[in-house]
């Protein structure tokens, strides 16, 4: 198998398992390398979209399934990853959130390679 060069690595985000960790958001944040400035934009956008205020001390277990998927997607989009592959992104989202996340992805698509896949 050919090894991809580092700059071609892709962040893989499967909506059926949105988080690696199971407790505080700060633990999940450690995986994404998001700058404090971009993080503050993420918190603001997330609260605007979901109505849910989050901080690093928020418990991710208290988010709904759809809110988890929205947060996973936004963590990926706000991260420095230049290439992101989303799998089954829409599966747990209601129609309003499907539309919202599509709009956000479109916004980030000018600076990142974003792929939408289905596991089916």
């Amino acid at each position: 198998m050919q090894k991809l060069p580092l700059n071609n690595e892709t962040l893989y985000c499967d909506a059926s398992r949105p988080f690696i960790t199971q407790d505080l958001l700060r633990e999940e944040l450690a995986l994404y390398n998001i700058s404090p400035e971009r993080l503050s934009f993420l918190y603001r956008d997330y609260a605007r979209i979901t109505g849910k205020e989050i901080t690093p001390d928020s418990r991710i277990t208290e988010l709904s399934g759809g809110q988890k998927v929205m947060l996973m997607a936004m963590l990926a989009l706000y991260s420095p990853a230049s290439s992101i592959r989303f799998v089954d992104l829409h599966i747990s989202l209601d129609s309003a959130n499907r539309e919202l996340i599509s709009g956000i992805i479109e916004r980030f698509a000018v600076e990142k390679n974003i792929f939408l896949d289905s596991s089916k």
């Binding site: 979901t50 988010l63 399934g65 309003a96």
Partner: peptide, 9 residues
């Protein structure tokens, strides 16, 4: 219900 409306809870 929409996301976050409490179905899973």
């Amino acid at each position: 219900g929409g996301n976050g409306s409490g179905k899973t809870s």
